[in-house]
């Protein structure tokens, strides 16, 4: 049996092992591949830089723990930029399982790193069910949708919310989204009615779809997958999981490209021999 025949009959578990090693070794021994900036990510950063201190940024945590490797680093980085610029952050979520992730990000960034005051500098309304219908109401009257925060405090008792009543009071909204409800609902139901500055951080699997909304101006920017999150970590100068993970991404992608090329060459060879 020739080497090429052996390769074409390779046990797929060898491929699994190779991918596992390609991901694990760079995590243990980081290489530090450069992370190039892309325009859609830069635009999100630039827009936040233009906001006046005290402006309100709405962050919607629309993912669950399975989306966290890609979206949690982006959440942390955007929060860091917002609090560094003294913007006020208003957190909601359309995924119930995203609430603890949003809370953890606020504890890490707002409380531990920037010593911000809850209720004055940031609020967390947690899970808001209803998807599209909730967003339509949110844009019209925030008090209708967010009657109590995650701690049960009535919205009227939160100082930050005194002048935050509708979409007009939100300078910038960003959804960290991994599916439905998520970016689609924000674009179709919120932005289509209320306009304003909207961006999305999207898991890689859904990211290609949202490039079309950049050209039309429906989105001001897009943070796509772990690569986008790594770019944002570079912009705020705080490397995290996304930066570390990009070494593994690069090696694993090279390996997979190699497998694809090899597989096709073997396929053509078999076809020719027949």
């Amino acid at each position: 049996m020739s080497v090429l025949t052996k390769i074409s009959n390779l046990d797929r578990r060898i491929i699994f092992l190779a991918v596992a090693l390609a991901v694990t070794i760079p995590l243990l021994l980081p290489i530090g591949f450069p992370v190039d900036m892309s325009e859609p990510v830069q635009k999100v950063y630039d827009l936040i830089e233009t906001l006046q201190p005290g402006s309100v940024v709405l962050m919607s945590i629309d993912y669950d723990p399975s989306g966290a490797p890609e979206l949690y680093p982006a959440t942390l980085s955007v929060m860091r930029q917002c609090f560094a610029r003294n913007l006020r952050v208003f957190v909601i979520g359309m995924w119930a399982t995203g609430v603890p992730l949003g809370q953890r990000a606020l504890n890490t960034v707002a409380v531990d790193e920037y010593h911000k005051e809850y209720g004055k500098d940031f609020v967390n309304f947690g899970f808001r069910p209803g998807g599209a219908v909730m967003l339509v109401n949110l844009g019209r009257n925030i008090y209708d949708v967010c009657r109590q925060d995650v701690y049960g405090t009535p919205v009227e008792d939160l100082p930050m919310m005194k002048d935050v009543r509708s979409s007009k009071d939100i300078a910038f909204a960003i959804t960290f989204s991994m599916g439905d409800p998520g970016s689609d609902q924000w674009i179709w139901y919120y932005h289509a009615r209320y306009r304003g500055n909207l961006a999305t951080a999207q898991t890689a699997i859904g990211a290609p779809k949202y490039y079309q909304y950049l050209q039309t101006g429906q989105l001001v920017g897009l943070i796509g997958g772990m690569k986008g999150a790594a770019e944002y970590e570079r912009l705020v100068n705080v490397p995290g999981l996304a930066t570390v993970g990009m070494d593994s991404q690069s090696i694993a992608h090279m390996l997979i490209i190699g497998f694809i090329v090899l597989g096709n060459l073997l396929y053509w060879r078999e076809k020719r021999n027949k």
Binding site: A20, L28, P69, A204, L241
Partner: peptide
Amino acid sequence: ASFGYTVMARISLLIGRLHFLLADWLHVI
């Protein structure tokens, strides 16, 4: 392009789990 992004998404999931095992569980990174 979608396939490339899909590969990145799946590898990201693996990175997330391996990072959990190596950092949060074993504390080797």
